[in-house]
Amino acid sequence: MVTIYDIAKACGCSSATVSKALNNYPDVNIKTKEKIKKKAKELGFVPNLQARALSTKRTWNIGVLFEDKSNSGLTHYYFSQVLQAVKEQAEEKGYDITFISKNLGGVDMSYLEHCNRRNIDGVVIACIDFKDNQVQELMASKIPVVVIDYDSEFVSAIMSDNVRGLYELTSYLIALGHRDIVYAYGHEVYVTEERIRGFKKALDEAGIPFTEDMLVKSRYSEKQANIDAVEEILKREKLPTAVLFPDDYAAIWGINAFRNHGVKIPEDISVAGFDGVEIGEMIFPRLTTIKQNTVRLGKEASLKCIQLLESKSKDNTKITVGIELIPGGTAMPPKTQM
């Protein structure tokens, strides 16, 4: 078995330098580090994880806490991309990923207890009830925590620009001539609050009075909830000219529900989604939506978590990731404007 002493001999340096280079310590020259890593690969060196944990006082293990309200788990089309980016970035830096839950081997425990049992170095939290006592307990602990799409004074956060997203989407519809716009919003969580704020901001700047009937309660990624939202809208004496849905899948289910009632999209009602996932490109006409940068969200969360755990610190840094408006054929000027 190849050891760090073999690598040191082959590179003409000390075993301490080899150890530091393989563990990415900053006090090793970049060229020396590259030379050592290249030689280690050539010799077939496999690191002893237990020895590395003892020498660095870290387990090289990042916890991921993820429980989406739609119960789609890792098949969730949006968050699966975010979590994949978290995983890839962590692995690139030499870390493993462990999913955190309230149950380990049939034993009920808190999220913090699970982290302590597994000796987790740091945690990335996404898509969960952040007001849950156990989540709050974890965020207040000594473990470095980074949250995705939640603003907390206690931990670092990587956030998609949800206010700007709904603001730009609503402003786009207003520019097309729409004034009677309904937003079918998702679960009542922080992200939804931010998006409603962007929706109201766009209306206010356009001089369109906001009324409560411009909001219809729905749910993220849930077929029946969005069909029900359409049914509620169809009961109105006067239909809106445009409807915003909480996400792209919701928008597609909404489009189908409208069409089943003889409502043409976009001729009778314009429709828009949110997220910018691939399925929006697969329907005809293409879905009008806001594209979120899932890869950057995941990578930034992973990198920030690693930076915190390696510096043995906690902070409440906020990083906002931009969005992009994707105009599509599901939104057009209302009939009165044509």
Rank of each mutant, 00 (worst) to 15 (best):
V2P: 03
V2S: 00
T3A: 00
Y5V: 02
D6H: 02
K9P: 03
C11E: 15
S15L: 01
Y25V: 11
K31W: 04
K31M: 09
T32R: 06
E34H: 14
E34N: 15
K37R: 06
K38Y: 00
K39E: 11
A40E: 00
K41R: 14
L43R: 04
F45G: 06
S55V: 03
K57I: 01
W60E: 00
N61L: 07
I62Y: 05
G63M: 06
V64Y: 13
G73E: 14
Y78W: 14
Q81W: 05
Q84L: 12
A85T: 00
K87Y: 09
E88W: 00
E91L: 12
E92R: 13
G94V: 01
Y95L: 01
D96P: 00
K102V: 01
N103G: 03
L104M: 14
G105Y: 11
V107N: 07
M109Y: 02
M109F: 02
H114N: 03
R118N: 10
F130R: 03
K131V: 04
K131G: 08
D132F: 00
E137C: 06
L138F: 07
L138G: 08
A140K: 15
V145W: 01
V146C: 04
V146L: 04
V147F: 14
I148S: 04
D149F: 14
Y150P: 07
D151N: 10
F154G: 00
S156N: 09
S160A: 08
S160V: 03
D161Y: 07
D161P: 07
N162A: 10
N162W: 07
V163T: 13
R164C: 04
L166N: 13
E168S: 14
G177K: 10
D180G: 05
V182T: 07
V182M: 00
A184G: 12
H187W: 12
V189T: 15
F199V: 14
A202H: 15
L203A: 05
G207L: 08
I208N: 09
I208Y: 10
P209G: 06
D213P: 09
D213T: 09
L215C: 09
Y220N: 02
E222C: 06
K223V: 11
A225K: 14
N226A: 03
I227S: 11
D228P: 01
V230S: 14
V230F: 13
E231N: 10
L234D: 09
L234S: 08
R236A: 10
E237Q: 15
L239W: 15
L239T: 15
P240F: 05
P240R: 06
T241H: 11
T241C: 09
T241E: 13
A242F: 07
F245A: 03
D247T: 12
Y249V: 02
I252T: 04
I255V: 10
N256E: 11
A257S: 13
G262H: 15
K264F: 05
P266T: 04
I269H: 08
S270Q: 05
F274E: 08
I279L: 05
G280R: 04
I283E: 07
F284V: 13
F284E: 14
P285N: 02
P285M: 01
L287R: 08
T288M: 00
I290K: 08
K291S: 03
V295F: 09
L297Q: 08
E300R: 12
E300V: 12
E310Q: 04
K312A: 03
N316D: 12
I323Y: 05
I323V: 08
I326P: 04
I326S: 02
P327Y: 10
K335Y: 12
